[in-house]
Deep mutational scan, measured.
Amino acid sequence: HNLTITQGKLFFHYNPKLCLSEIHKMEEVSGTKGRQERNDIALKTNGDQASCENELLKFSYIRTSFDKILLRWEPYWPPDFRDLLGFMLFYKEAPYQNVTEFDGQDACGSNSWTVVDIDPPLRSNDPKSQNHPGWLMRGLKPWTQYAIFVKTLVTFSDERRTYGAKSDIIYVQTDATNPSVPLDPISVSNSSSQIILKWKPPSDPNGNITHYLVFWERQAEDSELFELDYCLKGLKLPSRTWSPPFESEDSQKHNQSEYEDSAGECCSCPKTDSQILKELEESSFRKTFEDYLHNVVFVPRKTSSGTGAEDPRPSRKRRSLGDVGNVTVAVPTVAAFPNTSSTSVPTSPEEHRPFEKVVNKESLVISGLRHFTGYRIELQACNQDTPEERCSVAAYVSARTMPEAKADDIVGPVTHEIFENNVVHLMWQEPKEPNGLIVLYEVSYRRYGDEELHLCVSRKHFALERGCRLRGLSPGNYSVRIRATSLAGNGSWTEPTYFYVTDYLDVPSNIA
């Protein structure tokens, strides 16, 4: 807008934040220059609390790290170098490059900038070799853009010569660093050979998330399962459950009422301010606690030095998902009996873990797994792929695949051998790939016309006998059925096997 004052003059007093240069501009645009008398524009009460600059400061050096910015700028000295009290560095987070010096300023003089007072450097006698002032900004957020400017702080001049310097606002972004852990990993099994893994992005990506790394490792069953005799009275049979499938998407929606109208769909109840505040506090606490764990609990591995020492970490090797089922080394339970199943799973520490690289999504279907087997899954978020990966501390989750139908069934015939004193040795093959492992066998036998009897055969007993022995049988026709019990439950009964026990007292003698 054009402003013209045809008559009258300007009068400025007691404006401590208004620089004289701005008042002189007002004289020019209003056409009143030359009308004012000496005392109409006070030299001592206008701009006496402001830094009124008329020179431009330029930054000469900028260096960044993930949490620091090192700045240096060209030296500046007023005509009387004693008038320079120091520099004021202003900075704040700036997602967009549209910041002005006066953003967030209120009537009390406060604003949204963080201000650092910096002492002037030592003055050199040689004007050509003056030290460049600077400042190291610490405690910054990774991968965050900051708006920065600097200006001088000078003393009051009796001659009211307006001098000083100020830089333009520059924008500097800190470097990326390792992201925080992925949030809320959930693993479920939808079949006997697959596990579905879902997660949420890290709360602090500290860069642009480029991919996720998912490692999985087959877990050995508890050692007590191999040692305890679950045929003993009072000892509860062990059981394991597989990871249940995901709930429906509708039930997972946030901010939804727990109660549904019987007449149909209901609208979600909005969260109160107290609920939102509580969630923010919980989120802040979780982030602080995660940072504490990362800094205190997890110790970084030592990389190899120039002395030739090897990095103890196993090298990563990509495998196809079809090879995942046989990740671990199978060892027989008892070496003397080769027909026992290889369900003991000690994992070799030198073995390469299978892994998958996930790009542009937060889910993965891990296939080719062994049925009813526990897996430990390790999830890392990465925001750099080359020249070397920059990934987060791992988040861990466990899951067990679903049982395989008929995996616990005894394959092959049940054979028998009759000894003296009416002892019958029953023999059968253990299931080759049971659900988890076989903890015991149930032997059901009966003599024709009598009630059915049951015998429990422990895992250890089966390994020693290759089956079991029935003792003290009365003469007669017998039928026997056997079924295995694994961590997933009972298998199917075998087809009945028949044998006849004679009275050993009636056996004919070869003595003449």
Rank of each mutant, 00 (worst) to 15 (best):
S203V: 04
N208G: 11
H211K: 11
H211D: 00
Y212I: 09
W216T: 04
E217L: 15
R218G: 14
R218P: 12
Q219W: 15
E221A: 01
E227A: 08
E227L: 11
D229I: 09
D229P: 08
D229M: 07
C231Q: 02
L232N: 12
L235S: 07
L235Q: 08
K236P: 12
L237Q: 10
P238C: 09
P238F: 12
S239P: 08
R240S: 14
S248W: 04
S248Q: 15
E249W: 08
D250G: 06
S251A: 06
S251K: 14
S251E: 13
S251G: 12
Q252D: 15
K253V: 02
D261G: 05
S262E: 01
G264R: 12
C266I: 14
C266N: 13
C266D: 13
C267P: 07
P270C: 02
K271F: 11
Q275L: 07
L280I: 13
E282M: 04
E282R: 09
S283V: 05
F285A: 14
F285S: 08
N295R: 09
N295P: 13
V297F: 12
V297N: 08
F298A: 15
P300N: 04
K302F: 07
T307P: 12
E310K: 01
P312S: 12
R313N: 04
R313C: 14
S315G: 10
K317Y: 09
K317F: 11
R319W: 06
S320I: 12
L321H: 05
D323G: 09
V324R: 13
N326L: 15
T328K: 12
V329R: 06
A330H: 14
V331W: 14
V331F: 12
V334K: 15
A335W: 05
A336W: 04
F337P: 13
P338R: 12
N339I: 13
S342G: 05
S342A: 13
T343L: 08
T347C: 06
T347K: 08
S348P: 13
E351F: 04
E356G: 11
E356Y: 13
V358P: 06
V358W: 05
V358G: 10
N360I: 11
S363C: 13
S363N: 04
V365W: 03
G368V: 06
G368W: 13
R370L: 15
H371Y: 11
H371S: 13
G374L: 10
R376T: 11
I377Q: 02
I377M: 09
L379T: 04
L379H: 01
A381M: 01
N383Q: 06
E388D: 14
E389N: 11
S392D: 02
S392A: 02
A394S: 06
V397T: 02
A399E: 10
T401R: 00
T401N: 01
P403L: 10
P403I: 13
P403Q: 05
A407M: 05
D408R: 00
D409R: 14
G412L: 10
T415Y: 13
T415S: 11
H416N: 06
I418S: 11
N421R: 13
N422C: 05
N422Y: 10
H425G: 08
L426S: 02
Q429E: 15
E430T: 09
E433F: 15
P434H: 05
N435P: 01
N435A: 02
I438L: 08
I438S: 03
V439W: 06
V439L: 10
L440E: 03
V443G: 01
V443H: 00
G449H: 01
H454W: 04
L455H: 11
C456E: 04
V457S: 03
S458C: 14
H461W: 13
H461N: 06
A463C: 10
E465Y: 13
E465R: 04
G467K: 08
R469N: 08
R469K: 03
G472S: 07
G472A: 11
S474F: 07
P475C: 06
G476A: 02
N477S: 05
S479R: 13
R481M: 09
R483Y: 02
A484R: 00
L487R: 14
G491H: 02
T497N: 09
F499A: 03
Y500G: 07
V501I: 09
V501C: 12
T502H: 03
Y504K: 13
V507R: 12
S509N: 15
